[in-house]
Design a protein around this nucleic acid. Sequence first.
DNA 1: TTGACATATTCCTATATGGGTATATGATCT
DNA 2: AGATCATATACCCATATAGGAATATGTCAA
Lengths: 117, 117
Amino acid sequence: MARAATTADAFNAVAEPRRREILDALAGGERPVNDLVRELGLPQPQVSKHLRVLREVGAVDVRDQGRERLYRLNGHALKPIHDWVKGYERLWSERFDGLDQVLEELKQKEEGDGDGK
Amino acid sequence: MARAATTADAFNAVAEPRRREILDALAGGERPVNDLVRELGLPQPQVSKHLRVLREVGAVDVRDQGRERLYRLNGHALKPIHDWVKGYERLWSERFDGLDQVLEELKQKEEGDGDGK
DNA sequence: TTGACATATTCCTATATGGGTATATGATCT
DNA sequence: AGATCATATACCCATATAGGAATATGTCAA
């Protein structure tokens, strides 16, 4: 079998740097394709193709407005990545120095969970 | 051009689920290849190949011990992924509800930076 | 030395990729 | 209707892949 499709999941979709750039560009808000084309300096077809991949994994949503298509970031699709990599954060973060820090983290997490929404 | 090599960076290396499983398995500590083979239920050559990719991106280190090779996790290689995806955390995390929470986060970050390691 | 064990590498194949270029679709304006 | 703008798709190509099977390399034991 070949490598998993780029549309298989967020991990694969985001492995391509240009697609991360696109998501970063959309972090500021909804934008039409040509905006991204100008900002990233890529040929328009490439941008459209990358956007398709991002759409298939749910990382962006589209909305038609006149002859433009406005793309919007959907961060939820990136949560699995965050969830996975977060488990390794303690291996480099200064925030995890010392037991007191760890305990403080735990306390805060409890607070957060308790008063949800 | 084809897709970037899996060894191009951590993003590409980790896009393959088996490789994430391997890293997860190594989170508990150094382990020889056959241990991973048994735990993951993959053919040995595959595990060796995945380990090679992980080694090329710096996500694991190796050490020879007798006829075994002990692989060890190197979490630092995953930091770029964490750094990138962390910017999107607020899009789904409850911890970012309300401005007070945000300010508290900022305060904590300052503390953390101030008294480093 | 011979054999068993542990791991890595080689060879094969089907497949999907990203980039380039050209063209199709669709909406708006005149 | 025709022209123009905005975006998507189709087509071609070189390339690297993950998986499978076989084999090579290296280490230890008898």
